[in-house]
Amino acid sequence: MNNQLYDIENLRFPIGEFLKPNAITQDHLDKWISAIESFPQKIDELTKNLSIKELNWIYRPDGWKIKQVVHHCADSHINSFVRFKLALTEENPIIKPYEEDRWAELIDGVSDDVTASLQIIRGVHARWVLLLKSLGEKELKRLFIHPATNKTLSLEEVIGIYAWHCNHHLAHIEQALLYKGQF
């Protein structure tokens, strides 16, 4: 693929960007929670037999390696789980953003061993899904403020964002495997 033309935006967003529905329904929430619930198994299946060489394949030019995507998902989903708990226990908390690109370059973000990150994903998702399935209409409307974007987000919207995030990064891994990291 080195000499071929490719659309960098399609490589960045292989499933497109998240689009919030005008009205979030129970059907949306059920599908989104299901995507979050199934993510640990899907990422395990995609990565369980990969060699170190394959874990180092990138999904687009200047993109992360598969191993960095796995480590990022552990980091990101820990942060999201904490943000949900903050929103459920505080009034409109201002959450703490983090520099995900810089985290991806730390030693635990570039490690060839993704075992611990997959364990984190399994554990965080088990607790997160338990929490998500318990939320009523009132809790789903709770808010937090993201200071990096200056946006106020409802928990129901963030469920959709993270369902998208799961599928987005699964598609990145599938893309790296499809092209064998040849960008």
Rank of each mutant, 00 (worst) to 15 (best):
N3G: 13
D7P: 03
I8G: 04
R12D: 12
I15L: 09
F18M: 11
F18L: 02
L19F: 00
L19R: 08
K20L: 12
N22M: 05
T25A: 03
D27Q: 10
W32C: 13
A35Y: 15
I36A: 06
E37H: 15
P40R: 06
P40M: 13
P40G: 13
Q41N: 14
D44P: 06
L46K: 12
L46A: 15
T47A: 09
K48W: 07
E54I: 01
E54W: 00
L55S: 00
N56Q: 10
I58A: 05
Y59I: 09
P61G: 02
P61M: 10
P61C: 06
P61H: 07
G63I: 00
W64K: 07
K67W: 00
V70C: 05
C73F: 00
C73K: 09
A74V: 01
A74P: 00
D75T: 08
S76N: 10
H77S: 10
I78Q: 11
I78C: 05
N79Y: 09
F84Y: 06
F84R: 07
L88D: 09
T89L: 07
E90L: 14
E91A: 10
I94A: 12
I95S: 10
E99L: 14
E100I: 01
D101A: 13
L106N: 15
I107E: 15
D108M: 12
G109T: 06
S111Y: 05
S117A: 15
S117Y: 08
S117G: 11
Q119C: 00
G123I: 08
V124K: 07
V124S: 03
W128A: 05
W128D: 01
V129W: 14
V129K: 13
K133P: 04
S134W: 04
L135S: 04
E137G: 03
L140Q: 08
L140F: 06
K141C: 02
K141F: 04
L143F: 04
K151G: 01
S154Q: 11
L155E: 00
V158F: 03
I159P: 01
I161T: 08
A163M: 08
A163I: 04
H165Y: 05
N167P: 00
N167V: 03
H168M: 02
H169N: 03
L170W: 12
H172F: 11
H172E: 06
Q175R: 14
A176K: 02
L178G: 05
Y179N: 11
Y179A: 07
K180N: 14
K180L: 11
Q182N: 15
Q182S: 15
